[in-house]
Nucleic acid binder design. Structure first.
Lengths: 203, 203
DNA sequence: GTCTATAATACGATAGAC
DNA sequence: GTCTATCGTATTATAGAC
């Protein structure tokens, strides 16, 4: 028996909620692998085995599906960061775990790029209202990184260091994706970790 | 009087050649500002004031327009690098001129991202045949950078240094685009230039 | 809540007159 | 070489039966 206490839509029961989440999950993958504008309702319908027409019961427009995907990603990112906060104690270890994403996601990244970066770039071209929503995913990471750099002893330029680290990782991903080069990711991940280590204060 | 000695199509006269080039120029801008898949024939027709149907006299498919745009960009890049080779003598100055692109293109980059990077990412999702063509634009830069790093005294890891420099610039562009932040470009350009200076060998 | 049928539009591409 | 008219398809979205 399934008992659900929270509902994102008052008129939606447990079954509907599960269907809605299934659509979001499938759309999340497809938007990453094919791009938002290149993913059709038919694509999502076939992958989710939910008829096209049903989508309009859960979402009024395609844009609303994207917003739900972004919200879902934000929740997943927050949850991941929370796990890291429990697994690692020092800011240095937490920062290195962040950089380690490169290796964990290396294969996907070479094929499809960064889920955050590629979506932001796509939307930034001509759908800037949606892009500013997607930017929220970067903000979650950035705010967490700012805290780590502050704790490490760089309270004054913590935000720039956070931007710098995210920027370096984005760049590595773009070039690794362009050249489909996993070795470049590996080498670059080592360099990033060395850089993080070099920020350790001895006093 | 216009005398043309080279023709990319045997059956095409001077007028046709000019029209063809005009289509390529307009498509180049639109593909950059709206993305390839989000740019329609109607968009190009309106911006160029050439009727939709005429395109098929010059190009068999939309993909062929993209290939012509990529070829055109490669030519422009080569020409730019040649100018730099004439304007600057030392590899250090040439590398710094490369990094200076960030400042020159700062405004466009904040709005639309990198013309090479954003196109490569878009095509990498589900049009990999086209992406491998777009990669050629990166290759022109990379091979030139490899020569500069070799001349600077790093013949063994010149290719990695080239990838590293391009990677850093791509990352800066992605974040500056995501946050629409020209100041981040300015600061980062200074950091890149300091890094290039630090590579100078004293012996 | 679920599903089918279909509207309304935009797309890339073709045919053929001039 | 130029231009118009149009085909066939794919798209998002709606209407309405169940």
């Amino acid at each position: 028996m399934v008992i659900k206490t929270t509902r994102s839509n008052e008129a939606m029961g447990a079954k509907g909620e599960a269907n809605r989440q299934h659509i979001v999950d499938v759309a999340d993958n497809l938007f990453y692998q094919k791009g938002y504008n290149q993913t059709s309702f038919t694509d999502i319908a076939e992958a989710s085995e939910i008829p096209r027409g049903n989508f309009y019961y859960y979402f009024k427009t395609k844009d609303e599906i994207l917003l739900a995907v972004i919200e879902h990603r934000v929740v997943m990112i927050r949850s991941m960061l929370q796990t890291w906060d429990q697994e690692f104690t020092t800011p240095l270890d937490k920062l290195k775990r962040f950089a380690h994403i490169l290796r964990v996601e290396g294969q996907d990244v070479c094929q499809f790029g960064c889920p955050l970066g590629s979506l932001t770039i796509e939307l930034g071209k001509a759908q800037q209202e949606l892009q500013s929503q997607a930017k929220g995913m970067f903000d979650v990471f950035r705010e967490w990184l700012v805290k780590q750099f502050s704790d490490l002893g760089y309270p004054d330029n913590a935000n720039h260091l956070a931007m710098q680290l995210m920027s370096r990782i984005q760049g590595i991903v773009v070039m690794a994706h362009a050249y489909n080069d996993p070795a470049f990711i590996e080498t670059s991940a080592n360099e990033i970790e060395s850089w993080i280590d070099s920020l350790k204060k001895t006093n």
